Simulated assay, not measured.
Amino acid sequence: MSSDLLVKPSGNEGWTVNITPELAGWTYVGFDLHHLAPGESAHHQTGDREVCLVLISGTARIEAGGKDFGAVGTRMSPFEGKPDSVYVPGDSEWKATAETAVTLAVCSAPSLGGGLPARRISPDDVGQEVRGKGTNVRYVTNILPETAAADSLLVVEVITPGGHTSSYPPHKHDQDNLPHESALEETYYHRLNPPQGFAFQRVYTDDRSLDETLLIEDGVVTLVPRGYHPCATIHGYDLYYLNVMAGPKRTWKFHNAPEHEWLMKA
């Protein structure tokens, strides 16, 4: 049975994913994906939104906000090395021209008129950390954390080894209740290595008014409008995901599911 929370790509070429706040039924987060052959390009105006261009794989020449950043992107797979990205403010335009085969993610959220310049976020600029223990270990790369300049966007990517859980113990961030919890919409763009593998993601609330378990295959996007959202990938298949978050306040404060919080001390 299909789910409104699972967005599958429209193909393997061109503009394959187009998630707007209107289509998602929420307010803040947008996510697009472009697959470009060498020489092909994608270009857009940001308007009243800010954008983070993430080279999932491949190399592209990026022009944004009146600047030419040259060749951006060094890895040929999201499972190899750190990401290379470009931040683009509102009321700007950007263009990406592929030098190799490229998978380009376009993460967007409202621009609040912060007047920030376009900038490259190189592999050397991003921090990495290991979270969890045992089969809950995963590897996190902070592309656009709350400590980095932006109006609304929070962007992070995670690699979860085969047989491990992630976004676990289950946590949520759907209440504007700072300092305890922030309200953030979120997308997960998933990839698997090798690509024929699969994983699972559950999105659910305490009262189970939302409770869906989703089959995750290579290239799909999960929408998380509210609730807890843990993932688990099967043995032999590593799971990559790119998270985009935004809400009324640009901070990530989450609430753990009380019945599973004991795992934090185990």
Rank of each mutant, 00 (worst) to 15 (best):
A60I: 09
G115V: 11
V88M: 07
T222I: 13
H35Q: 14
T16Q: 02
S108C: 09
V29D: 02
G73Y: 01
G11D: 12
D206H: 07
L6W: 09
I121N: 03
T103Y: 00
G163I: 11
F200K: 05
T27V: 10
E212T: 05
L263G: 00
E50I: 08
K172T: 14
E40N: 06
D68K: 05
N136L: 11
W26I: 05
K133R: 14
A42K: 06
R49F: 11
H229T: 07
T222P: 00
D48S: 14
E99I: 13
M76E: 09
Y139R: 13
E93W: 03
P78K: 02
V140Y: 04
H260M: 14
Y139Q: 05
G65M: 06
H171L: 10
E186G: 02
S209K: 11
A64N: 02
A150C: 05
V220G: 01
G127N: 13
L53R: 10
G162H: 00
G73I: 07
L53Y: 01
H44E: 15
R49Q: 14
A101T: 10
M264C: 09
E13S: 15
H44M: 12
S85N: 13
G227E: 05
Y204F: 15
T213I: 13
S2Y: 08
V54A: 07
R61E: 15
V224F: 03
H235F: 09
G162F: 01
S10F: 00
G162E: 03
T222H: 09
A118D: 05
L192E: 05
Y139A: 04
A149E: 15
S152L: 08
V126I: 13
V203N: 06
P145C: 09
S3T: 10
H229S: 01
A232S: 13
A199I: 10
F200R: 12
A246W: 06
R250M: 08
A150D: 03
S166F: 00
G58A: 06
G163K: 10
Y241C: 03
E99C: 01
